[in-house]
């Protein structure tokens, strides 16, 4: 008798939790722009995984989590008007720390915030998965169950839209 790793075993479940929770949390955060909501959705997705542990093999756990979280998000209709926050003191590598430069950077940050809000939820999430998470088109395509080409277009469209919005502000 061989014993296969099964998500119903708590050790296996906890391992998957450790491996996947942060990227799932980020994914939910990109969608909701909300810290608390992204936490709830992430936890709920893991709860669903636990409840269906017998049906999901460990190798499918990641895609199950992302799909489930995405579906859970679609069920939460209410969208709060929230904005992303950015770390202060951007570009420490830059030597140019003149007040003009810092002001310009701050202004740019505010413009980017507004620009990100102008994107559709799908464009924004795809773009952030690409830039912040460093995901490839292929991985984004897998999450949304779309083609790699469509995923690439979504990211590129988002970038061009951001540029357009920022330049017009």
């Amino acid at each position: 008798m061989e014993k296969k790793p099964n998500i119903c075993q708590e050790a296996v479940f906890n391992k998957i939790y450790k491996q996947q929770v942060q990227s799932l949390r980020n994914f939910m955060f990109f969608k909701t722009k909300d810290t608390a909501a992204s936490y709830d959705l992430t936890q709920e997705a893991f709860l669903k995984l636990w409840q269906n542990c017998g049906k999901v093999s460990p190798s499918k756990a990641k895609s199950y989590l992302f799909t489930t979280a995405n579906n859970l998000f679609l069920n939460t209709v209410a969208h709060k008007k929230v904005q992303f926050k950015f770390r202060q003191g951007v570009k420490k590598s830059q030597d140019n720390n003149s007040p003009e430069f810092l002001l310009e950077e701050k202004e740019f940050g505010q413009k980017l915030q507004k620009a990100l809000n102008s994107l559709t939820q799908l464009q924004r999430t795809a773009f952030l998965l690409s830039r912040v998470e460093g995901k490839k088109y292929k991985e984004i395509a897998a999450i949304y169950n779309i083609t790699e080409k469509a995923a690439g277009k979504r990211v590129l469209d988002a970038l061009e839209k951001l540029r357009e919005t920022i330049e017009n502000l």
Partner: peptide
């Protein structure tokens, strides 16, 4: 600039603890 977005840091230990305390967590599983 986008890369500087502040991400929520997910506390793994408290997250697992919260799951274990959820009454639905230990329901009969399939």
């Amino acid at each position: 600039h986008t890369k500087e977005i502040l991400l929520p840091e997910h506390d793994i230990a408290s997250g697992i603890k919260a799951l274990n305390e959820n009454p639905l967590f230990n329901k009969p599983r399939q």
